[in-house]
Design a binder for these strands. Structure first.
Lengths: 198, 198
DNA sequence: TGACGAAACGAACGTTCGTCCTATTCTACG
DNA sequence: CGTAGAATAGGACGAACGTTCGTTTCGTCA
């Protein structure tokens, strides 16, 4: 890895952490430069525009999400086990130490949803992908006859997604430990309902 | 109503609409002044600081939420009917025409959750209130023996809250009509699970 | 009608933002 | 070792931000 790629990657790590706390818009080039010990202009040269920086931050986040959540789950056997692995890693993701302000996708979504542009496109594509991946894992569990055949995979994915969002908000609204327990209970209820009766 | 209170109220209406699209921080005094056809300084005099303006926007939103969601539901009979009324009005609220960017509380939460201050305090208090109100309505339904007595009202409130959040995000991620249908289905499943078996 | 307080205005402030340009330092390779 | 090109620094810019100030307009009641 060349020197440029090296610092660029280090910058993105810091940027990810900052963005989770202050939002994408809050990651100012000056503040970010100060955090990594560089000059504004030196850092700026890596991205050429703030918009590019924002997209790069999202790309970095997506890459980590795939590595930490999606990929490990795909190694699990098809069916409910894989769905549960996704949920487990998802909960761990939202507590990841490189995102002290919580899931960056949640923060970015609220900012970008009314501001068209490349960053918004990148974020929406990533979230649609993930929702599709979740629904796909549920569909496989149906095909494997672990879930009832009248289960709607997209409805289940919708509800799981909603509860993960709920964890993000409710752990800031009250006790994070309690919020996580309730979220796990909700996940359980959704999957138990979907399970085929024996 | 004096002239000052009159324009102040008109300003807050516009501010609410802007904040739902751009977030609280995006409601710039200059932009807001332009929207209502005033000078920056003339508008600024009503609030004395941007922080005060943000709190005033939240107060305005809370007032409307109580009038449009909480109050009508409290007129319904105790029990599941009241819970369902809350949910119905809540869904209508998140589509209110004075918030073209969606529920302002969701937008504000993402911005404020890592920025201590009066605005954050106001928002957290309001959301805790609402969560408590929801849980209270569920508890009443348990007391009225419409819900099973082993139902945990706070768990139910948590799941309802999570699904309402899910609606906000998922209606921007995909078809809003489909998202609302799925949210209603999730609400139904939660309440049906809670209902006493006959 | 005259006067007084409330309300709104226009201009300016200091700061921070993203971006650009030029010069300097570093790094890798022939 | 020397040099070309990559990487970084320094400084300046125009615009937008929140805020302040002194002045002007408006509404109300004696």
């Amino acid at each position: 890895m060349t020197k440029g790629e090296d610092t660029r990657s280090a910058v993105l790590g810091q940027a990810l952490s900052l963005a989770s706390q202050l939002g994408l818009e809050g990651v100012t080039i000056g503040k970010l430069a100060e955090h990594v010990g560089m000059s504004k202009s030196g850092l700026f040269a890596h991205f050429s525009s703030k918009e590019n920086l924002q997209v790069a931050i999202l790309d970095e986040a997506v890459e980590r999400f795939v590595a930490l959540v999606v990929a490990p789950a795909l190694k699990k056997p098809r069916g409910e086990a894989r769905v549960r692995a996704m949920l487990d890693h998802w909960l761990a993701w939202s507590k990841a130490d490189f995102m002290p302000g919580g899931c960056i996708f949640v923060a970015a979504f609220a900012e970008l949803d009314d501001r068209p542009g490349p960053a918004r496109d990148r974020l929406l594509a990533a979230q649609r992908d993930w929702l599709g991946t979740l629904a796909g894992a549920v569909r496989i569990a149906v095909e494997e006859k672990q879930f009832r055949k009248d289960v709607d995979p997209e409805q289940v994915a919708h509800e799981l997604y909603a509860n993960a969002l709920g964890l993000h908000y409710l752990s800031r609204l009250g006790d994070p430990t309690v919020a996580e327990r309730r979220t796990r209970a909700a996940f359980d209820r959704i999957l138990t309902d979907a399970r085929a009766r024996h």
